[in-house]
Amino acid sequence: MKMDILMIEDEPNIAEAVRFLLSREGWQVGLHADGAGAIEAIRAATPRLVILDLMLPHRSGTQILDDLRAEGDAALAATPVLMLTARGQSAEAGARADEVLAKPFDNDELRQTVRRMLP
C-alpha cells in the first residue's frame, strides 16, 4: 500500500515525536534514519509527502532533495517535500523545498503544514 509520509530523520526522539503526532492524525508514517540510502527509501516507498531533515549523517537534506528532483519518474520527482531544519538559516535550504519548518516546531504547526501539503 502507498505510504502517506516518509520521514528522513536521524534523531530518534524527534522521529518518534513526529511519527506519534502524525499517526494520530491517521497518516501512515515511514522512517529512514540516515542520509545514506534515503533516495532509495523514497523510491521504494513513493510517499505522498517527504519530511526531510536538513542535517543528516552521510548525505545532507539538500543533497537528497536534489537527488529527488532529478529522479526520472516525473511523479516521484514532484513529490512534495517538507524540510525540517535545526539551523538558523532555513531560507537558503528551504528555497528549494516546498515547505520549511524550523526546529523546535509547534505541534499544531506541524500538523497543519502536513495537512496542507498532502494532496
Binding site: E11, N13, I14, A17, V18, F20, L21, M55, A86, R87, G88, Q89, A102, K103, P104, F105, D106, N107
Partner: peptide, 20 residues
C-alpha cells in the same frame, strides 16, 4: 550554526513531547 543545530535538536524533542 552547529551550536544552533546541537541545541535545537534536543529542544525539538523536549518541546514536542511536552506538548504531547
Amino acid at each position: 550554526s552547529q551550536i544552533s543545530h546541537e541545541l535545537r535538536t534536543p529542544m525539538t524533542s523536549v518541546r514536542a513531547f511536552s506538548e504531547i
